[in-house]
Amino acid sequence: MKVIFLKDVKGKGKKGEIKNVADGYANNFLFKQGLAIEATPANLKALE
């Protein structure tokens, strides 16, 4: 799953980066902790 990092995550990505991560990692950790959002077309456009 492609995500946009909202904060730096050690060993995974930095704020503003768009990366592929495992679905479970994104859903169970990144999204719940507010560290990333899904890289949907709307979210990508808002990032610009």
Rank of each mutant, 00 (worst) to 15 (best):
V21R: 00
K19I: 12
G24Q: 12
A36P: 00
P41D: 13
K32A: 14
K19M: 11
G24A: 14
G34S: 06
K12E: 13
E38K: 11
L30T: 00
N27S: 10
D23S: 15
Q33H: 15
K45C: 10
Q33F: 15
Q33T: 11
A39L: 06
N20Y: 15
F29H: 11
E38P: 14
K12H: 15
K10R: 11
K32F: 10
I4K: 03
K45L: 13
N28D: 15
G24V: 13
A39P: 03
V21P: 00
G13Q: 02
E38M: 10
V9E: 01
M1F: 09
G11H: 07
L44K: 06
K32T: 13
K7N: 08
M1K: 11
N27E: 14
K12C: 15
T40Y: 03
L6W: 00
A46R: 12
L35K: 03
G16V: 00
D8K: 04
K15W: 04
A22F: 09
N27R: 15
V3K: 09
N27H: 14
K2S: 10
I37V: 13
V21Y: 05
V21D: 02
I4M: 07
N27I: 15
K2W: 15
K10H: 12
A36F: 02
F5Q: 01
K32C: 13
F5D: 01
L35H: 04
G11I: 02
G11P: 03
Q33K: 13
V9C: 05
L35Q: 03
D23L: 15
N27Y: 14
A39K: 00
N20A: 13
K15H: 05
V9T: 03
L30F: 03
E48D: 11
G16C: 10
L47P: 05
F31A: 05
D8E: 07
N28T: 07
G24S: 15
A46Y: 12
N28E: 15
A22H: 13
A42C: 10
I18H: 03
G13N: 02
G24K: 11
L30M: 02
T40I: 05
T40V: 04
D8Y: 07
I18M: 07
G13Y: 13
E48V: 14
E17W: 04
F31K: 07
N20T: 14
N27F: 14
A46W: 14
K12V: 15
A46L: 14
E48C: 14
F31N: 07
Q33V: 09
I18F: 03
L6I: 12
N20K: 13
N20D: 13
